[in-house]
Design a binder for these strands. Sequence first.
DNA 1: ACGCAAAAAATCGTATACAATTTAGCCATC
DNA 2: GATGGCTAAATTGTATACGATTTTTTGCGT
Lengths: 234, 234
Amino acid sequence: MKTAAVPADDQIDVSTQSIRDSIRDAIVDRRLAPGTKLSEADVGALFNVSRTLVRGALQALAYEGLVNVEKNRGAFVAYPLPEEARQIFATRRLIEPGILREAAKHMGPSHLQHLRQLLTEEGRLMAERGQSARRAEIKASGDFHLMLASMTGNAVMQRFMDELVARSSLVIALYGQSAISSCGHQEHQDIVTAIESGDLDRACHLMIHHIDHIEADLDMRENKGSDLREAFKL
Amino acid sequence: MKTAAVPADDQIDVSTQSIRDSIRDAIVDRRLAPGTKLSEADVGALFNVSRTLVRGALQALAYEGLVNVEKNRGAFVAYPLPEEARQIFATRRLIEPGILREAAKHMGPSHLQHLRQLLTEEGRLMAERGQSARRAEIKASGDFHLMLASMTGNAVMQRFMDELVARSSLVIALYGQSAISSCGHQEHQDIVTAIESGDLDRACHLMIHHIDHIEADLDMRENKGSDLREAFKL
DNA sequence: ACGCAAAAAATCGTATACAATTTAGCCATC
DNA sequence: GATGGCTAAATTGTATACGATTTTTTGCGT
């Protein structure tokens, strides 16, 4: 059976952590499709490490919800079910307004500039063509939310958001319809504008609607991916 | 060097998961003091498993923030710094009102009865003496928040709360002053009463103050534990 | 040909082995 | 008596080995 295609760094010294990050990036960047099997031996061969380290990385990713490990069968890139997807977005709606307010508290002019900078980059990527620009655009879109989380100065929240954004990316990969909601970029801008003008209530309002829009763009009818095992076993 | 004292089940078949849970319980129950070294060999001997499984469990616990693993030095029961503690409670203040509202949406009479039942048990434990009753009381106090989280029906939120409650318990073990804020029990009751009466705004308000009170009961002046390594290395 | 059972291969689960690093002990020296 | 450095012990990091489980292949009978 064909098994993952993971970016193969050659010769470079790798640790469990770096393997985890590489696979994570590959999943979030959608270079690894949901459901793809991640064979311990194969991944180990790609990184020139033993299964021991690969197992550690896969277990960590399982904890983040990015891969499922099935006993005696192996690890697979997570294939979030619609219900799971709903829970992820429900959690984001619950958390992100609070993050926004908390971030705003600590925000200075330089922070705002960083945000604007990110938005500029996001807009630039939207103009470009090609799959790699598309991927970069999706990543940048997630980075907006992550940057807000980092501005809270709260490492716990930041980690929660890391996980939520990563899993969201997986959900969008599975159920997303429109190439990308290009309105997302506009909504990001509106949120920053609201923050700048000091209208946090409005910013939070916009944020919630923004998340709603992302979720509304999904088509979560079952069996989109036709993975029969997933469809029946869970 | 003396190293952990972990509850030793004898002969029972154990997996990584059960080891993780046992250590987790021991930490949350405060039978393992913060800073205690968890030697792979020793833990493995107690559970009659190889270091491989122990390592897996310790890595998972590290991800939850319950243990710190220092490269080439080993795993230690986490010793949260004051700043970390503040972030944990800040995150709880941010999340728990939302959980409350979400839980209330799905709450039927049977759910309310479960909550009342938990509060009764909590009250009963408060009347008892002895260290084990004290531990059970602390656990029950955390269970109140976890039960609310479970009532949201949202597995993601539930896992976040699991982590937050576990880490809170560690913080309280380190910095807690008054035996236990016995007012906590009263506050739990007030929250449930507010929910029953349908006044969610009031319930959320009470919840936030409840978390504030827990945090206010801490004495987080530095060096309570006088672990010099921790003081300098982080 | 098709289906089913048994053998073979592949893959995972766990333990053990060995290398790398840290820690502890000890003696010489100031 | 304290300090510095050297050696030995202990501990972790990683790879390998082997048993258990699953998956695939093979081959037989219908």
